[in-house]
């Protein structure tokens, strides 16, 4: 495999024209998959195009409307070290804190976590709950779309050939009083989420005026439950109310069995995690 190291976006776009080229962000997922491909005798990309040299793809900027623009090639550790992240996006910070391990966070990038589009991607539930958008650029220009539209299935995105995920835009969410993320993994670090939940709840006079709930690892992509969100409207975050909504979640969720947990467990826990909102 050739390894290309562009420094600027035009160079990057040119590099992506190389036949058989594949983008290399942090490498924490891609290189593991290439290792498996090599072991199994499957074809490897002809060239890897590094994103870590393109400075414009990193960093956090606050935009005029208060949104945060997160560079897609920023590593998780870089984002976590930025004061704006913990301050403005505590649910995303909580998710990134538990992603992989310290060296994985030093290498892996937000854009990589998104484009891998794993059902268990740790950054995805909080970004979905926030209503984040992605910015995609290519020689043809730049476009923006909702993250929920960008990820189309496990491992599948709307990224076109020659296109690069350049940034993630998270709108402000300061008017949500409850901002919560919980990951259920099988151990304290280096764990793939078995179930995760990001919850943003806006209260008016103690009652739910808006609820955004997003679960990871219970479906092919991040799962939202409009029925549960609707059922929470007007409720106080009591055990009784949350228990009732948890039952709605369990009725609607369609998880699968895999090596980490059964569908039954995921269904049960997807509902249970809501109860935590009662004791925050």
């Amino acid at each position: 495999m050739k390894v290309l190291t562009p420094r600027e976006l035009p160079e990057l776009f040119a590099a992506l024209e190389t036949p058989g080229a594949h983008m290399l962000a942090g490498g924490t997922d891609l290189l593991v998959r290439l290792r498996a491909a090599e072991r199994e005798g499957r074809a490897l990309p002809q060239a890897l195009v590094r994103l870590d040299g393109v400075a414009v793809l990193r960093g956090i900027v606050r935009e005029a409307d208060g949104s945060l623009r997160l560079g897609a090639a920023a590593t998780h550790a870089e984002l976590l070290a930025h004061p704006l992240l913990r301050q403005e996006l505590p649910e995303l910070a909580a998710a990134l804190c538990e992603l992989g391990s310290p060296p994985i966070r030093n290498m892996g990038t937000l854009g990589g976590n998104i484009c891998t589009a794993s059902p268990a991607g740790d950054s995805l539930p909080p970004l979905m709950a926030l209503g984040a958008e992605v910015e995609l650029a290519s020689l043809a220009g730049t476009r923006r779309m909702a993250l929920s539209d960008f990820i189309t299935g496990p491992g599948r995105t709307s990224l076109k050939p020659g296109e690069v995920l350049t940034a993630v835009i998270a709108p402000p969410a300061r008017n949500f009083q409850v901002r919560h993320f919980e990951k259920v993994g099988r151990r304290g670090a280096l764990a793939v989420a078995v179930v995760s939940l990001a919850a943003l709840v806006r209260l008016e006079r103690g009652r739910v005026a808006e609820a955004r709930l997003a679960w990871g690892s219970v479906g092919p992509t991040v799962w939202r439950c409009p029925e549960a969100e609707a059922a929470l409207m007007g409720q106080r975050l009591t055990l009784t109310a949350l228990g009732r909504v948890g039952a709605i979640v369990r009725e609607n969720v369609r998880p699968i069995d895999d090596i980490r947990a059964s569908a039954d467990y995921r269904r049960q826990v997807a509902g249970n995690l809501l109860l935590r909102l009662a004791v925050l």
Partner: peptide
Amino acid sequence: RLSCLMLAAQ
């Protein structure tokens, strides 16, 4: 960083 997940070029 982890050198098993880095390429020489990096």
